[in-house]
C-alpha cells in the first residue's frame, strides 16, 4: 500500500501547495489536454521544462515522481513498443512480416513515452500538493452550476468529506480486526484462492457491522448538532483566489500560446 504514490498527499507550504485547489485542478486538466497538441520535439522539450519547473516549485523530491511512474511502467513500455513496431513512414531500419522499425515509428514511440511520463508527473504533482479534501472542495465548486438541475451538490460534498475523514479510522479498524482474527488462528494471504476468500469473511462482517454502528452514532451526533441538510448552511472551509492563482493562469496561457506557435514552426 505504501508503494503507490499516485493519489498520495504530502503536506507542505510550497507555492504549489498554497495555490487554490480550483486553479490547480483546472490547470492540471488543461495541461494534460495540451500535451496532445504537442507534435514535435521542440514542443515536448517546452512541456518537459515546464513540468520540471513545477516539480522544483513543489519542493518535493524527484524520487516520488519516478516512483509514481513505476507501477505503470509495463503499460507504458507495451504502448511504446506497439507504436514503434506498427508505425510506418520514413526510412525503414528493420522489417519482419508485419513488424517493422521505421524512423517515424521510433519518433512516435518517443513521443508516446514522453506523453505518458508528462501526464503521470503532472497528475502526481496535483495529488502530492493537494489534499483529497481540497480536491473534493474544488470539484464541489466546479459542480455548483449543477445545483440548478437539482443535483444535491452540498450533500455530495459533505459525504465525500466524511468518507475521506473516516478512511484512517477504518484502516485502523481493519488492522485491529485482522489482528484479533489472526490471534484466533486465521492466516490472511496464505493458502489457495478458496482459503483466502474464506479468510475474508471474518474480516468483512465485523468491519461492516462496525461501520454501520459508527454511521448510526455519527448520524445521531450530527443531528444533535443541528444538521438538517444542506439548505441554509454556511461554510467554514474557504478557498481564497490569490494573486498567485491569477499569475498561474497567465503563465499557463503563455505556455499554451508558445506551444501553439512551436507546433507550426
Amino acid at each position: 500500500m505504501n508503494k503507490i504514490i499516485l493519489g498520495r498527499y504530502i503536506p507542505g507550504k510550497s507555492f504549489l501547495h498554497r495555490l487554490d485547489p480550483r486553479s490547480k485542478l483546472v490547470l492540471s486538466f488543461l495541461f494534460i489536454l495540451i500535451i496532445f497538441f504537442a507534435n514535435n520535439w521542440r514542443t515536448y522539450i517546452l512541456l518537459g521544462i515546464f513540468t520540471f519547473f513545477c516539480i522544483l516549485l513543489s519542493k518535493i523530491s524527484l524520487g516520488f515522481f519516478l516512483k509514481g511512474v513505476r507501477p505503470l511502467i509495463w503499460l507504458i513500455l507495451f504502448t511504446v513498443v506497439l507504436q514503434i513496431f506498427f508505425t510506418r513512414g520514413g526510412p525503414t531500419y528493420w522489417q519482419f512480416g508485419p513488424l517493422s522499425i521505421t524512423h517515424f515509428g521510433l519518433v512516435n514511440g518517443g513521443y508516446v513515452f514522453c506523453r505518458f511520463v508528462l501526464i503521470i508527473f503532472m497528475s502526481t504533482l496535483l495529488t502530492l500538493t493537494t489534499s483529497p479534501l481540497e480536491i473534493a472542495d474544488a470539484l464541489e465548486n466546479l459542480m455548483l452550476p449543477l445545483k440548478k438541475f437539482k443535483v444535491p451538490v452540498y450533500e455530495i460534498s459533505l459525504m465525500i468529506s466524511i468518507a475521506l475523514r473516516f478512511v484512517p479510522t477504518l484502516m485502523d479498524e481493519t488492522e485491529k480486526i485482522m489482528n484479533a482474527q489472526r490471534a484466533r488462528g486465521v492466516n490472511f494471504g496464505e493458502g489457495g484462492l478458496i482459503k483466502q476468500l474464506k479468510a475474508i469473511v471474518p474480516l468483512l462482517i465485523p468491519l461492516f457491522v462496525g461501520a454501520f454502528n459508527r454511521a448510526e452514532d455519527l448520524a445521531t451526533a450530527m443531528e444533535a448538532r443541528g444538521y438538517r441538510g444542506g439548505e441554509g448552511r454556511t461554510k467554514y472551509r474557504f478557498h481564497a483566489w490569490h494573486k498567485n492563482d491569477t499569475l498561474s493562469c497567465i503563465i499557463f496561457g503563455l505556455l499554451a500560446a508558445i506551444l501553439l506557435f512551436l507546433r507550426s514552426w
Binding site: 452514532d217 445521531t220 443541528g226 444538521y227 438538517r228 441554509g232 454556511t234
Partner: peptide, 27 residues
C-alpha cells in the same frame, strides 16, 4: 451533547472544521 465514542462524533476533516460544524448548520 458529548457522546461516548470520541471517533464517532468527529465530523470535520480537522479540528477547527469540526468545531465549526454546528455553526455551519445554523447558517
Amino acid at each position: 451533547m458529548v457522546f461516548q465514542n470520541p471517533d464517532n462524533q468527529f465530523v470535520g476533516a480537522n479540528v477547527e472544521e469540526d468545531v465549526a460544524f454546528g455553526l455551519e448548520n445554523q447558517g
